[in-house]
Design a binder for these strands. Structure first.
Lengths: 199, 199, 199, 199
DNA sequence: GATTAAGCGAGACGGTACGTCAGGTCTTGTG
DNA sequence: CACAAGACCTGACGTACCGTCTCGCTTAATC
């Protein structure tokens, strides 16, 4: 899974894409975002930091948002994979804890927050964010929830999608407002929203 | 309620602040944000639209974020006041429904989303957003929850702050990802999180 | 005679044009052309050398050619004014000698050569060069010749315009091909072309 | 007459230079210059138009100026050969008329004007222009004049070189300033400058 | 015929300059 | 003294070419 921004061009002749440059750009963008913030994340700064010509960036990425999406997709697949096996309460709790840790501690979490933010400012970002990151991931999460329900592992009162929002929303909200995410928040959400009430 | 960004200056002589200009700027900012998005919200554009000199803006507001904060504070106090009286389950549900409507339907809701977003990009925005909007409002919300608990109206398993995040987070999250907010999401959150479990 | 590129704007309020900046740009352009050649004469280099923002240049001049025209017009009016009084053979000879010296020795002469050159490459330059420099000057030169004929001072066999080309062309041609301009070239041209043949 | 920019390399094996590519480049450069002007004459545009790789151009020509020189040399030898036989007043007049026509009517004349222009902007061009075109041609012209003097055909008051400038300069000057070249200009120049005065 | 060196189309790459836009500061006159 | 107007320096934008480089294919002379 290359997570490249576009379909890999296959020219019959000519130089191939310089992998070192690609990685340099990805890392430069990541580093700049973490160290200096989104405001300092300009194409010129990325090019400077990566030791790469501006045109090389424009050749492969239509905007800095796509660069961030490339890093985010690659990182989040590595760090917070959506459990593929039939889930248990425990594994969902683990997934959400991992997600909370990702958002608050992992530099890559800053990328996700920045993209959610930028999606508010720019419709193109919103579209791309949904198409390349949020849509697919939410799909996997829905599957996870649905499988858990089928297996009788839990019984949320909301549909799979709303359930995920109810679980993930508070975590994201605390991250967005710069608060830490206490462990019992995650635990209580899982318990309150996924297990059926006896009444 | 002046909601001005700085303490009202009291010059000994000379003109006082031009109220018409102040309102023109506020409205221009608001309109531009709604019509053309945050990306088009530049100081120059605001000045142009408001028929005001750039310097007049810089004289009174340190940044466009403070302009938006001015409008947000004024609007949110009007449209979604935090219930002051001892709350009931019903009144909290009403508050959250109003909040959801504000975020998805009210133009002023776009201002809040934009500010949450901008706070991710810029530490100064984050600081100001907390000091002038989020901190105070969250304080009132905490009070509301605390009063409800004291009155025995509900019994959340989380602290007041985390409870508010658990309630508001999903709403904000859906708004941020461009989804609608179904009524039963709010209702179920209130029920699952505020009423104690019998088990 | 301001030799400004456009009609002097007269704003009712706001800062006036910065004369120091205007001169800095003119001199920077001149110096760069002489020191490093037309190839190094970029807007960015002029701005750098003049200690002026690029935008300040674009605000007042549509192209570097107009900058050069400004300096050329100012300089050539000072250094090689077309004689206004009824000319003599002697004064025409003096004028042409001055012109030859201007082209080969005066740094401002390089500006004229560069503009003649650039007019070959770019139709806009050609148009502007004619409208602002060559047309008016040629007009004065024609008048000079015509007055000399009227006064019986000389009797060229060609019309005033062609006569001027016959006189000036060789000088310009030698300058363009990097040759020096021997004094007797000028003298012989004047004698052969302006005085009538007895046969 | 190969008119190639460098001595023909003699590889031990491998393909020889592709003549079709060479001609395609020459014609593309010529066409572009005439159709779109020197400003549009970029290596990339030539390569595009010629259907040739950029590297193929850089392999054989050090600069676009050399390409133009190749076409100019070939064309001017064909169109305006310097008379080799002992000249008459008539043949010199014919040569100059041909030259004037070449400059104003022949597309190849544009190449000469462009090169004279570019020589003002760039010392390398000047050097190459003299070495490959102007020097040799001027040499032949000088010989022509000298032979005419020896034969008693005419008796200019200037040296052969200055005489040529006096004859050619006005023609070039009018071409450079975009004027037409009236026939009597050439005729009068020849008469006034080449035949001795009786006084 | 196989080998091999060059030519060639294609195009990625690090650069420089383009002309434009907005940022934030300042100056100038008007009310 | 606030204000409209707007000049100014700064710096990023996205684009066009520069000249260099590698890649894989084709083409011919040499082995």
């Amino acid at each position: 899974m290359p997570a490249t921004s576009s379909q890999p061009r296959r020219p019959r002749s000519g130089s191939r894409r310089d992998e070192a440059a690609r990685l340099a750009v990805l890392h430069a963008a990541d580093d700049l975002l973490v160290e200096r913030g989104f405001g300092a994340l300009t194409i010129e700064a990325i090019a400077r930091r990566a030791g790469v010509a501006k045109q090389t960036i424009y050749r492969w990425w239509p905007s800095k948002v796509e660069i961030l999406l490339d890093t985010l997709i690659e990182d989040s697949e590595k760090r917070i994979p959506v459990p593929a096996e039939p889930p248990t309460l425990e594994s969902v709790r683990g997934y959400l804890r991992g997600f909370a840790r990702f958002l608050t501690r992992d530099p890559a979490g800053k990328v996700l927050l920045a993209l959610i933010a930028q999606a508010q400012h720019d419709p193109d970002t919103a579209k791309s964010f949904h198409a390349r990151y949020f849509g697919p991931r939410r799909g996997h999460e829905r599957d996870m929830i649905a499988r858990g329900i089928d297996a009788g592992e839990f019984a949320p009162r909301l549909g799979p999608d709303a359930t995920m929002d109810a679980l993930v929303g508070p975590i994201v909200h605390r991250a967005l407002t710069g608060s830490s995410i206490p462990r019992d928040l995650v635990d209580t959400l899982v318990e309150d929203l996924l297990t059926p009430r006896s009444d």
